[in-house]
């Protein structure tokens, strides 16, 4: 169906570049997601607790400003955001190309998304349980650490899976501007050349990767949730 040369190229890539590429893809998936949670988790919790009906209302102009910033960042298409943030990458990791350079823009793109996911997870925690904790004399910080986050844990883990998959997709897109990983191989060899076997092979690997992340995520969520037994 495809030419002998196409298969030959795919074989070469699988032998020489594939392992590095999949390592880069995993790096570009997990590290930015982790960074995004480091920023997005407190931010998402703040969006709930700082609400005017929340357990620790904050000045409402501040809350509105946070909301606007999150919405702004979320409405910029990822590739555009990526290009806009690359100068920051140069500053932080010292380069604009390659897998490492992508970590910063990926985290910047993912944290507003993660903040919203955390917000919805935390809002689902039963208000009665929070009220019980308040009645027992728990402080705001204690409620956050001992009630909101532990009670929202299954939802948070489920959303962590969603975030990982989204970031994995973003990472593949970054191949278009000299990122790294499987996306770069798919675009450089599969699309620009063009070489369909390489393109399809990379897509299949990405699909498998997403499936694996999702099913591991589902298992962990199921095991961690004590509500259904």
């Amino acid at each position: 169906m495809f030419s002998e040369a196409s298969w030959e190229l795919l074989r070469n890539i699988m032998e020489e570049e594939f392992l590095t590429a999949i390592g880069e893809t995993l790096l570009m998936t997990f590290v930015p997601t982790l960074l995004a949670f480091v920023i997005g988790l407190p931010l998402g919790v703040l969006l709930v607790t700082g609400d005017k009906d929340g357990i620790h209302p904050m000045p409402q102009p501040l809350m509105q400003a946070i909301n606007v910033i999150i919405n702004l960042l979320r409405s910029v298409p990822f590739l555009i955001l990526l290009i806009m943030v690359l100068p920051l990458s140069k500053l932080v990791v010292g380069t604009r190309v390659g897998c490492k350079a992508m970590l910063v823009p990926l985290a910047v793109a993912a944290f507003p998304f993660v903040a919203r996911l955390v917000e919805t997870s935390v809002r689902e925690v039963d208000a009665g349980v929070v009220e019980a904790a308040q009645a027992m004399g728990a402080s705001t910080l204690q409620i956050v650490c001992k009630v909101l986050i532990p009670e929202a844990k299954p939802a948070l883990l489920s959303n962590l899976t969603v975030a990982l998959i989204t970031v994995c997709g973003y990472g593949a897109m970054s191949g278009a501007v000299g990122g790294g990983g499987l996306g770069t191989i798919a675009i450089n060899y599969g699309y620009y050349r063009p070489n369909p076997p390489v393109l399809y092979a990379m897509v299949i690997v990405l699909i498998l990767l997403v499936q694996i992340i999702q099913s591991i995520g589902n298992q962990i969520v199921k095991r961690s949730d004590k509500r259904s037994r």
């Binding site: 039963d126 009665g128 349980v129 009220e131 019980a132 009645a135 027992m136 009630v147 532990p150 009670e151 844990k153 299954p154 961690s224 949730d225 004590k226 509500r227």
Partner: peptide, 11 residues
């Protein structure tokens, strides 16, 4: 305080 809905920590 105790409540109609018990309000236990489910996790």
């Amino acid at each position: 305080m105790i409540f109609q809905g018990f309000n236990l920590l489910m996790q």
